[in-house]
Amino acid sequence: MLKINNLHVKLEEEDKQILKGLSLEVPAGQVHAIMGPNGSGKSTLSYVLSGRDGYEVTEGEATLDGASLLDMEPEERAAAGLFLAFQYPVEIPGVGNMTFLRTAVNAQRKARGEAELSSGEFLKAVRAKAAELQISPDMLKRPVNVGFSGGEKKRNEILQMAMLEPRMCIMDETDSGLDVDAMRLVSDGVNALRDAGRSFLVITHYQRLLNHIQPDVVHIMANGRIVKSGGPELALEVEENGYGDLLAEAG
C-alpha cells in the first residue's frame, strides 16, 4: 500500500535536513507503529506524506498503491485515500463541524467521480459514527475544534477518519493528551476501522497505545531514518529500556 524509499527532506526556509534516507513499506491490511525520540522527524514524515508546505524533498520517493504521492496536491492525496490524524487538530471558527465533514466527504467523492451523499444519507452516517465515538450532537454543531478539549479534538479526528474511509491512515501522536477512557474510545474507533484493505501508520511516544491498537510491525526512528524494525515486542523493549541501547546499536 504505502512505500517510502530513501526519502530525504529538508526545511524549505533553512538548510536543515530532517529526513535522511527513510525507507518503509506498509502492506495492505497492516498496522505499523513508528516510535522514536523527540526530534527524530516523525511529525515531519506525516506532514511530508500529506503534502504540507514548508518542506523540500531532495531525494527519494513515496507511493500509495504505486502512484507517486509527492507530486500530488494535499487534496489529491486525500482523494487517493490518504488521511492524517493531526497531532494538533486545527480550529476553524464559525465553520460547523458537520459542515466541515460534509464538505470534505463530498469533495473527495466528487474527486473520485462518485455521487455525493444526500443530506439524509450523510446525517444518518455521521450520527451513527459519532455515537460510537461518544461525540455529542452538540459537538457536531459547534465550530470545528473550537473550544474542544484535547480528548474531544482527537475523537473528532477519528470521526473524520471514519467518515472519509481512507485506505491509508497516518496517526500523528493521537494518544498525546488523552486520559485512559479517551484512549480506549479512540482505539476502539481505530480498531473498528481495521480491515484487509486498510493500513495504519501509528506514530507514538508510548507503548501504551499499542496495547489497544495491536501493531503488526514496530519501527524505531532516529535522526531521520528507521533504525530498527520488529514485532510488537520492540515497543515493549523501548518502554522498558528507553531508546539508548537501540540507538547505540544502530550507531
Binding site: R52, F86, T103, Q108, A111, L164
Partner: peptide, 16 residues
C-alpha cells in the same frame, strides 16, 4: 495557512 492545509488534507481544493 494551517487552516487551509487542514481543509485540504481532508480533500477540499484550495478555493473551497
Amino acid at each position: 495557512d494551517d487552516q487551509l492545509f487542514y481543509c485540504r488534507s481532508r480533500g477540499m481544493d484550495e478555493e473551497e
